[in-house]
Write a protein that binds this DNA or RNA. Structure first.
Lengths: 361, 361
DNA sequence: CTGAAAGCGCTTACAG
DNA sequence: CTGAAAGCGCTTACAG
């Protein structure tokens, strides 16, 4: 119930008590031991340039010896801002969420920040007030937004209004460069198109994600563009919108595979839908890749658990999380210049077993 | 950079400014408006019984009108304890982690607590000091531990030493009931055994997880027990230890499936290993469930993406997270009695397509 | 380059 | 049932 070890004996200064039995030391203890004011210790903690090198050294030595770490709550109270970074997300894929968290934590290692997580549902009427309440109450240092909540302009306006720093991860540059990590879904999808075209496919279909996600459009655009480079077009009937889910992918594939002529390849907007395509093909007795080539997007763990192994477009999610958090931290530091540029992420095509030459007609 | 809206005009009380332009109100504002001391407001916030009903009503009305919420940092500083709950985990399965987080967040909804997450690696030499530093520095209100870090007694001793409340989720009652959410992996595994026996299998193999996980033993024990109920024994050669991973599951299955007589059913300690079994069967040209029945454990999302759909044992991960967090909160409240009991969770067998009658010999 | 005073927004310990 | 004083561990604003 109490984070101080046995309270110090009356009259004993914290420094005088043993290492095991002592209560946590404070800035006052450090100041006393270094024979300076606590304000000077505070300057050292906060990397102020206005401290004599000798003084800084002495204080740092004592800090290290005592294992002192300033209390984030006290610091936050005085700063009028906490040392908490929020991750706000509505992506339903567990692996995506966990990788992103890992990346943000990577960037936070060694800092005094902690990560608080906040799933959300933009379709709720209370979404904006809830978020406002959460952020203002916790006085968050900043937030990282992932798709699709990162694409919500009402929300971003709210963040600006309450002066909460943010970084947005999205497939298009929606905002000033300093706040953006842009994933070039476009280019990854174009790679997928070239790959299928180069294998000799001409009857190529696409199942895109829901129109409410920018990534759906980017992936579809990139795919169309990649096909165009090879002199191919995405036919109207081969172009289906689904919902980024297994079931919607399966339904779309079922329709596509009953067309005449039947497509020999399908590019699914994500791996979940690609798994649905597998199922639909199986139901129809079609072999992958013998009768049908399939390419996904995300390179999620299922991609390498499926049979045959799924060719897919990989985004370095963890790196993206790290970069986003770094932008947040560096925003107020000397490295500003570097982080004022937009951060760009290029996906890579991972070729596995699900894509091959089309069947001989 | 500042969480207060336009600073109030000099002389203007917060209450006098408009709703949009006002700075966040504090306990002092409430006290002034209610004509009481801030201590009394504090009592209302903290649900003290020593407040006249009338006073409480008046204060609560004003709190509601102003949308006042006490500052967690200030409160934490005075309490010497933050309003942060830590989730500490080393489970590698993304879906598990995310579901657990969701469950904990479910329990926290409507409270003033927030969730900070902390993946860890028990094999690191700095594990214990790192954790200690993290918990003491943040003055965590409490932590939820999931397997396998929940099984680490050195760590739990550290928590007790620094007086950090905790709840452990594990497959065996390792601790006092008030700190335990116990998952009966034993009973789920016994269900799996009965299911396979009742289908007519006699040559039944098991691939267990690593010995360092208690769940490995519980699942193996339960499985053996279930078989025994049906007059069956788990043969030595049919009993393999693997690592809860895809590759290790595949390797173990490869060995099992080359035995003579070949087992007609395999119970894998988790779904990842079951996926490895699928792969090994496919490599050998064996049909599931025609030649081989497979049962997994976890009922992870892959289970219903695999082909054929995997029969698996399901644990309500999200509920477990919620219950664990509730135990943490209620520990200090009037509901103590109820939460002093051990919380128990029973898994359920989800029968899908991967288990059927054994092939006719 | 350094420090004394006041304050961040709450609660504790004490008193009545 | 209620309140005035002191304090939680830091930083800001000001002064030198």
């Amino acid at each position: 119930m109490n984070y101080r070890k046995k309270p110090a004996a009356p009259g004993a200064t914290p420094a005088a008590t043993s290492d095991t039995g002592r209560k946590r030391s404070t800035i006052n203890d450090i100041a006393r031991m270094a024979n300076v004011s606590k304000k000077t210790v505070s300057r050292v903690i906060n990397d102020s340039p206005f401290v004599k090198e000798e003084t800084r050294l002495k204080i740092n030595t004592i800090i290290r010896e005592l294992g002192f770490a300033p209390d984030p709550q006290a610091r936050g109270l005085a700063f009028r801002r906490s040392f908490l970074i929020g991750m706000i997300y509505d992506n339903p894929t567990a692996q995506y969420v966990v990788n992103m968290q890992q990346g943000i934590l990577d960037a936070m290692r060694g800092t005094s920040f902690e990560l608080v997580i906040r799933p959300c549902d933009r379709s709720l009427a209370t979404f904006l007030p809830d978020m406002r309440h959460f952020i203002e109450r916790q006085k968050l240092f900043g937030v990282v937004l992932t798709p699709s909540v990162s694409e919500d302009d009402r929300f971003v306006r709210l963040l600006q209004e309450i002066d909460c720093p943010y970084v947005r991860i999205a497939s298009v540059p929606l905002d000033t460069p300093a706040t953006m990590v842009v994933t070039h879904d476009f280019s990854g999808a174009a790679d997928a198109a070239r790959h299928l075209a180069d294998l000799g496919h001409e009857l190529i279909a696409h199942i895109s994600g829901p129109a409410s996600f920018r990534s759906s459009h980017e992936r579809r655009r990139g795919f169309t563009e990649g096909l165009a480079e090879r002199g191919l077009k995405l036919r109207r009937t081969y172009d289906r919108e689904a919902g980024y889910t297994f079931d919607s992918g399966m339904a779309a594939a079922q329709e596509l595979l009953s067309l005449n002529p039947r497509p020999t390849a399908i590019f699914a907007g994500n791996d979940e839908m690609a798994a649905g395509v597998y199922k639909a093909a199986r139901n129809l007795g079609l072999a992958i890749p013998g009768d049908l080539s399939v390419v996904g997007f995300d390179d999620s763990p299922v991609a390498s658990r499926m049979w045959p192994l799924l060719t897919s477009v990989r985004l370095p999610i963890r790196d993206m999380g790290r970069m986003a958090a770094e932008k947040l931290f560096h925003k107020r530091t000397e490295r500003r210049a570097r982080n004022d540029d937009v951060t760009e992420v290029i996906p890579t095509l991972v070729i596995r077993e699900s894509s091959a030459r089309p069947p001989v007609a």
